[in-house]
Write a protein that binds this DNA or RNA. Sequence first.
DNA 1: TTAGGGTTAG
Length: 415
Amino acid sequence: MSRRFPPGAMSRRILERKIQDRYHAGHIGTHNALNLFDELIQVAGPSSVRAINCLLTVVGRDCPVLGVSLFNRVARAKVPPHNITYSILVDCCCRAGCLDLGHAAMGHVIKLGFTEAIVNFSHLLKAICAEKKTSYAMDIVLRIMPMFNCVPNIFSYSIVFKGLCNEKRSQEALELIQIMVEDGGCCRPDVVTYSTVIDGLLKEGEVDQAYNLFSEMLRQGVSPNVVTCSSIISGMCKAQSVDKAKEVLQQMFERGILPNITTYNSLIQGYYSLGRCKEVDQIFKEMTINGVQPDIITYNIQMDYLCKSGQCAEARKIFDSMISLGQNPTATTYSILLHGYAMEKSFHDMHCLIDLMVENGISPDHYVYNILISAYAKEEMVGEVMHIFTKMRQQGLNPDAVSYGTVIDLLSRIG
DNA sequence: TTAGGGTTAG
């Protein structure tokens, strides 16, 4: 009988197929992926790289350090890593907090000469931008990568655009987008690029420029999607133009773009900010009709409105019912209710809530401590304020500008 | 459909 594959190759192919199928079905957990990796690496050949990438992705998402260690085993096996394997490695290094290793891995990839436009370092660039060093990320994308014939793709650009917008440099992002369009090269702005910059412009209050860019996007034949529209709706709601935002929602339906919970949350927040509760009820009805379920953020927005309008007891009812609705309160949820109790000067309720928060495994963050500091400062209870500073430090949190600002204000008041 | 970018809440 003639063989199409050398000995062992057939069972290897079957195993590779099994891994990829189960990966696509979302049926591989970390533990399972580790076992499959052990099994595959013993018989692995060049064809195994896709299955290995799947396993590295699963393990790396859960435990990036483990992802790096698996990569070392791939490198020792007879499997030449693919550029995607390197992307996963750089991702793991960055998420493990080893930015230096991420840089080293990027240097290694460049040295290996992956010259096609497909290698990119999304997580490295994101990590650099998160440190507010977007200029450096921009230098990597615009100068360093092309210098090594490693052409950045649209993902890399979008990360830089987002970094610029986060640093309130949306004007620069706008200029860069125009250069990309005029250049007319293979890397053209897409819906994500445009949406990012439109959102950045809106957040900086540059409404006209945002609309101009939206029109430019349409002229370029790029269709908006739910994220583009949600950004515009959110920007309008924050500018108190909620009725115009509602019109955009209508236009979404006309264009066949279905709103999601983020879209609705922006509108709910917008109506609450104007005290228009009837319209909020209307939005909830519309959500039900359209099959969109409220999420934790919806409940947080609702609770925030109730607390700020002196209805803490109602907010507490929502809080207590959240768990039964399958929504676990987050640190934000606790801080909203805590702020409500602080407004009512209900110190007993505040302390009970913090105890509950800790019991439920959520550590108080800066927001929570600052609410406590502010509440005690208002009552000029200096000893309590200092006690909270100590507690913060014990928990490894350094008081921030808000904490110190409150204390300085208190000290200047009491002389 | 081997990874990777954009929207909402304190």
